[in-house]
Design a protein around this nucleic acid. Structure first.
Lengths: 213, 213
DNA sequence: TGCATATAACTGACCAGTCAGTTATATGCA
DNA sequence: TGCATATAACTGACTGGTCAGTTATATGCA
């Protein structure tokens, strides 16, 4: 078929090779997040990124490859940040824990923060490699960083000698649970009052529930 | 094409209408859990349940209907149990919390326990009704039951006066988090030593982390 | 006989991935 | 500077395969 330009003054597309991959990943994240990986159409991802479907295949060889690239891109920064805050905070571990929790809560108010975890959870049955990758590159690293902080706190005498892994669970679990409730189950969220939530969280974590009056 | 019976002596099927729906649901749960809702094929669900694809459509009008029925079937019992344990335990709330935690941990060692939550998480974007249903019928009810227990404990003076919602988060979050780590991310699991895990959990929950020596 | 239960074979729609060809931009050369 | 040539970036249109759902037909049972 013959190509007929509508208006010679406005070009149909621009060449933007360097910006494309990131744009496509962003579009894919949104689309996968809204429809789920399988139900999402490459055509829609492409349109959202501002190019044609075939164009996407110039940058990513397959839908699965796009998924993997997406997770890789979104995964490393998170763990890195956790590790940085953790090592920087070894001098004042309790303060670092507080800062970390505050930062996590703030992040979690943004629905997009939960997009990748949600994808991983949904797809872990079919793509175990993705689950493994996410575990090692993100969650295990974050857990490790936190455990270092906890051990430092114990060594300094600022914290009782409790199993560090259990402390990490007690620290992260409630925040994770609330994020789930908010973004997946769309429930009324405590994340809307972050200060209150953080205060209660640390009150319980540090003082426990027992009535010592 | 003509249908030719292979062996006239062995009947191709038996009349088992009453058992079918449950069998199909069970098969669907397994199949959805392993491949994900979209990637799962009705043909496979049918085969697993021991009948043909068309046969499944005698009992469920569509794949989505099957999904909904599945979630409805698996959802009510859990919340009911939580509510029962909770109301039964109002006399001894702290004991009831301990019993509940133990029961949850034991349940969570079975990978299938996590199948429905995993499905809901993965599909919540595309089927908000399912997320809403699950929230109201399961999680909200369980949360409510727990809050009742917590309020009873506070009233009895067995627990400090802390925001009950925060207590529930601190109670459930770590268990949920560990289940996730185990079944979704396939990590080395603390659930394999349930007594240790429960002991640490309650130690932190009741006494807190602060060093009061 | 008649109805409920079942299936094999079929259909229609959808979509990941491909391909032949087009357009935007860069480069070489006068 | 202006024009030819090269090629990177891009697209519309197509294909092959898959699969949810349907239909025509067969079988067990009262």
């Amino acid at each position: 078929m013959q190509y007929v330009p509508l208006l010679s003054s406005s070009p149909r597309w621009k060449r933007r090779a360097s910006a494309r991959p990131e744009e496509i990943l962003e579009a894919a994240l949104d689309e996968f997040n809204e429809r789920g990986f399988d139900a999402a159409r490459m055509e829609d991802v492409a349109r959202r990124a501002g190019l044609s479907k075939a164009g996407v295949y110039l940058y990513f060889p397959s839908k699965t490859a796009l998924l993997q690239a997406l997770i890789q891109a979104k995964v490393a920064p998170l763990a890195q940040q956790a590790e940085m805050i953790a090592t920087a905070g070894l001098a004042d571990p309790m303060g670092a824990l507080r800062a970390l929790a505050a930062s996590v809560v703030m992040r979690m108010r943004d629905p997009k923060t939960f997009a990748v975890p949600r994808l991983v959870i949904g797809l872990s049955g079919r793509f175990p490699e993705i689950a493994d990758y996410y575990r090692e590159q993100t969650v295990a690293r974050a857990r490790g960083a936190l455990e270092q902080l906890v051990k430092a706190a114990i060594a300094k005498g600022a914290m009782r000698n409790v199993d560090p892994a259990a402390v990490v669970r007690a620290f992260v679990g409630p925040l994770f649970f609330e994020a789930m409730w908010t973004h997946v189950l769309r429930g009324e969220s405590a994340l809307n009052a972050p200060e209150d939530m953080l205060a209660s969280h640390f009150d319980i974590l540090l003082n426990g529930l027992e009535n010592r009056a």
